[in-house]
């Protein structure tokens, strides 16, 4: 079954077209990188997939649940890490996670067990009773990922999760998410503009100026476009049009 499927997705703000007939899917348990330069439409795509607002045209399904017809069922399958930091800075990490657990209807006992599990896995459990304000950027990101996993989603969406982090911080986040995908079989849609975050085993979707430029195995992109490297392929895909 497809974890996420987008069919002919289009959106505009007023006269400005930001997405045009975008179709691709993320397979269950796969890591899919959504690559695009700034302004490619990645964040708009995330807003549509997470149901913040409806697309002007097209269809979004999450594990077969239509985002338009049954958003609650679709959202229940989804863990989201937004591009902007969305933690309450005055609350502790644990309190932030409890809030999220409650929004997803978790019972208090389950909530406590899971928040410890997830924070431990992301190596931030020792800071769980400190206000988020006192955590570093990388730690805050890990708390956000832990939070997104509280309700055991089957697909995790991350919108440029490494922006603003230093190199070790970025690597740590990437490794954690890859481990989740591998060990728990969670599908991942990871939006980024950093080419180095793409691995040859990933599925790759290249978005440019609101249009889908390429979708397929990341290892194949250079060969398909008859260029030397993935970097060259990305240049080719984002220069034309």
């Amino acid at each position: 079954m497809k974890a996420l499927s987008l069919e002919g997705l289009g959106h505009s703000f007023g006269q400005r077209r930001v997405l045009e007939a975008v179709s691709f899917s993320v397979a269950e348990g796969r890591m899919c990188i959504l690559l695009g330069r700034n302004g490619a439409g990645k964040t708009t795509l995330f807003s549509l997939v997470t149901g913040l607002y409806h697309a002007r045209s097209g269809q979004i399904d999450v594990f077969g649940h239509s985002m338009r017809a049954d958003p609650a069922a679709a959202l229940a399958q989804m863990g989201v890490v937004f591009q902007q930091q969305t933690l309450d800075l005055d609350l502790t990490a644990a309190e932030n996670l409890r809030y999220h657990g409650a929004l997803h209807g978790l019972a208090a006992g389950i909530c406590e067990t899971r928040l410890r599990e997830e924070l431990e896995r992301l190596e931030v459990l020792d800071r769980c009773d400190e206000p988020v304000r006192s955590l570093s950027g990388g730690q805050r990101r890990r708390v956000e990922i832990a939070r997104a996993l509280m309700h055991r989603p089957r697909i995790l969406l991350l919108d440029e999760p490494t922006t603003g982090l230093d190199v070790p911080g970025r690597r740590a986040i990437e490794q954690h998410v890859r481990a989740l995908c591998r060990e728990r079989g969670i599908a991942v849609l990871w939006a980024t503009h950093f080419l180095e975050e793409v691995s040859a085993d990933d599925d790759l979707v290249v978005l440019h100026k609101g249009r889908l430029r390429w979708a397929g195995g990341a290892g194949r992109v250079a060969a398909d476009l008859a260029v030397a490297s993935m970097a060259d392929a990305f240049d080719v895909l984002t220069e034309a049009a």
């Binding site: 149901g51 913040l52 609650a72 959202l75 989804m78 989201v80 930091q85 969305t86 999220h100 929004l103």
Partner: peptide
């Protein structure tokens, strides 16, 4: 503006 409103609005409730 800061984004945390999105957390509330992506909860699986009407």
């Amino acid at each position: 503006e800061m984004g945390s409103m999105r957390l509330l609005l992506t909860a699986p409730l009407p």
